[in-house]
Structures are given as C-alpha cells and as structure tokens.
Design a protein around this nucleic acid. Structure first.
Lengths: 228, 228
DNA sequence: CGATATCTTGAGCTGGATCAACATACGTGG
DNA sequence: CCACGTATGTTGATCCAGCTCAAGATATCG
C-alpha cells in the first residue's frame, strides 16, 4: 500500500481516522505522499486549488500578502490538520511550510468523491472546519479588540498550551515555534513591538526569557488576565 | 407540514435545498420556526449550544464582548445562512438579531442525525462552513493589515455587492444596513473614525452620501483600489 | 415642540509604526 | 581557531493614525 497508513503518526487523529479499513484503503489509493522543505509553497494565492492535504508532520502557515508586500499569517496548521478549499476554484491565500513537512495529498475531485462515498468523512471534515472557523473568529476578535500586549500574551498562551501534553493547561516552559517576525505577522504588529512587549512582560514578572526562543511562564495568571 | 418548505423563500439556496423531497420532509418534522425581534439573542456566549438554525429572513450578527464590554462583530448572517456550532458544547460568541428575523431551528442532536442520514446535507454544510472560514480569514487580513480608510472602503464595497442582484458587481446606489456604531464594531474602529473616513471618501469623490444611510458610488475604481 | 438617539466635527493624546543603531547568534571560509 | 558576514533580536527616538473627550448638528418620535 502506497501510503502506509498503518505506520502513519496521525492515523488516529486526522480526518481519515473516522474511516473503516476499507475506506482508508480507498483513500490510500487516491492519495500520495509529498514532502516540503521549510519555506516551500503548497498552494499559492491565485492558483487553481485542485488538491487538498492532511498534514502528517511539520507545520504550515496560511498567509496573505497585501498590495504593499506585507505578509499576514492567518492560521497555523499542525499535524493531523487538513488544508484545501474543496469548493472554491482559486485560492486567495498562500499555504507555506514553516518547517520541513510530510503531507498526504489528494486531488480535490477524488477527495470530493470520497466524501460523497463516506458520509462519516464529510462529517469529520465539517467538524474540523467548524473548529477552524471558531479559531479564526477568536483570532479576529483578539486582533480587533486587544492591545499589543494582550495579543502577545494570548499568543504565548496558545503556544504554551500546545506545548503541553495535557490540553487546556499551559506548559511552564517551552520554545517559541516562530521567529519574532512570524509572531508579528500573526498578530498584526511589527517585530519591534513584539520584542518590546516580551521585554515588558518579562519586567512585569509574567515570563522569563531563555535565549531567543525559550519562554518560562512565571505568572500564568498575570499573563492570561491580559486577554479574554 | 409544520415548516411549509414549499413556500420558504430560501428553499433553493439554504443548506436543506440539496435534499430530496423525502429528506426535506424529514427535516421539516424535526425543525420548528422561530421569530426574533430586532436585538433579541439566539445564542449567548457561555450557554450550551444545543440548537442550530437556518436564517429565512432578516439579518443576524455574530459578536463577542471583551472584558471591558466592548463589542466586536465577527460576522453577519444573511437569509439562507446557517448558524450553530454542532460539535462544540458551549458557544464563545453571541448571535443576535439585527432586524426582525425568521428562522428554522433544529436541535443539534436531531440535525447531527440528519447529517449522518443524508450525506449531501453534510457536504452542503461543509461547503458553507468553508466559505464562512474563507470570509472570516479575508476579514481578518483586512483588519490586521488595512488602514481605517481601507476597512471602511472594503465594507462599503461588500454592502454594495450584496445590494446588487448581479453578484460581483456593486450596486451604484444602496442603503447602509448598519449604523455607524455597528460598522465600527465590525471594523475594529470607533464611530468617529468611521464617520470621518466616510466624509473623506466623499470629499475625494469616491462616494456621495444621501442622508445618514444612503450611499452612491461615484467612483467604484477609486474605492476598490484602497483595499486588496 | 422638546426629548432622545444618531451622526458629524474639532482638539488633543497615545500606542504602535517607522527609522536607526546596536547586540547576539550562527555559520563559512581563511 | 578566529575573522567576517548574515540573519535575528533588542533598544532608543520620533512620528502619526486612530482613540478619547467634547461640542454641535441632524434626525425621529411622542
């Protein structure tokens, strides 16, 4: 079998995990693996969106460039996540690898057929998409209403949560997965402002920095009360 | 039949339009009509989300209040639109009627069963949700990157498009469906800034105002080049 | 006709952007 | 191993778009 689902690290978390043996076999025949180097583009804005994919390993960003060449990061995609606009002919966003990535890629038309054949797959994808919509709206409200410090604090919190094994409990110590510039692009701020807010948070005793990317949460409560 | 789908004004645009006669009959048995007065709340943040709904008539807003009581409008819902988080136990957002509304309401558990029984319904909902996600991300990038004038111009454009019968062509003249305050809440600006940007756009010759809510597009190109 | 809500306009203030300098890490080749 | 170059991050100084506060203007309605 080409896709070797048996050894897939996300086989029980990805959308395809809701399928039975036969369904997964079918998907494995229409899909193919692909790897991306860090910085490589999966879809580009303006191009035809004829494929979709499940991320097996690594991290992707969904971004948009405005007229002046400024990049906005709209979402991050983690392993087991799904990308692709099944129903829109052209993409308005770029999807780019942040790190080296392994993906399971499907042609849109094949995947749409699989959705029709396997209702539970459609339902799983619906669930995923509703969750993404929810996350997008949460981000939108943060960016629209929150101050620079609140945005940085919320992003730190999100990273702390995803670095922790127990969900909804932030890790006390973690490494930032993004550079200052990437954080700025996610938050609609500049590199300088992100840097200054991190120093401010450190001076207030909310966090401690270790090197460029290491963060220790000294006072999670103080951090979380800055947003929400 | 309780829901009288035969006379429903959105029967060929709503998610349920993909169902055959039998499927629609089934839905009509599990759903019920509800009307909301302007300002009435359908869901409130923090409450259990045990129902979902298709909007038949009127307009809804999806909003969030931050700690200081500031409201952010995250999305508008138009007739044939669908609201409801099928898979999340509690809502993080309020859904409130902007105008008097008629809705077709379903219990989440019933609707989920209908999705399982009718794959085409799941697919239709998936499509709708992907489109909403797309719209949410477009809004997010506008708010993160765009100036005040760009945001106001983009909102005018959106209203002009939805006021026009032909899609993708803005109406030359239309009435603003929102107050200045509601526009400000959608754009992450203040009432004063929205008002000032409208005056600026009028002085530049891009638009002409007629009374408080009437807008005439004098120079659509000048307007649209401000964003995107 | 006054009362209340909505909108516009003006005058300053401020948070984050911009511009600029410096610091630190990390190769790569001499 | 060190010298240098590049990428990344920090800090300082200034500027400006949009916020805040305040005053009028324009409905709309009993």
């Amino acid at each position: 079998m080409s896709l070797a689902c048996e050894t897939c690290p996300v086989r029980d978390r990805a959308a395809c995990s809701v399928l039975d043996e036969a369904g997964r076999d079918e998907l494995s025949r229409i899909g193919r693996h692909r790897t991306l180097r860090a910085g490589e583009t999966l879809f580009a804005a303006g191009e035809a969106t004829d494929v979709c994919a499940t991320l097996i390993d690594g991290a992707l960003k969904v971004t948009r460039f405005d007229a002046e060449g400024h990049e906005t990061i709209l979402a991050l995609v983690h392993p087991a996540g799904f990308v692709g606009e099944l129903f829109q002919p052209f993409s308005d966003f770029d999807v780019v690898a942040l790190t080296e990535c392994r993906l399971c890629v499907f042609a849109d038309r094949d995947f749409d057929a699989a959705i029709a054949a396997h209702p539970e797959l459609a339902r799983a994808l619906l669930r995923r998409t509703q969750e993404e919509l929810h996350a997008s709206r949460a981000m939108q409200s943060l960016v629209m209403a929150g101050s620079g410090k609140a945005r940085v604090a919320a992003l730190l919190w999100k990273f702390a949560e995803s670095a922790s094994d127990s969900p909804c409990h932030p890790a006390a110590r973690f490494e930032l997965p993004l550079s200052r510039g990437e954080m700025a692009d996610m938050l609609g701020l500049t590199i300088e402002t992100v840097s200054r807010q991190l120093t401010a948070l450190e001076q207030e005793g909310a966090i401690r920095r270790e090197g460029k990317r290491g963060i220790e949460l000294l006072d999670p409560a103080r951090l979380s009360h800055l947003f929400d």
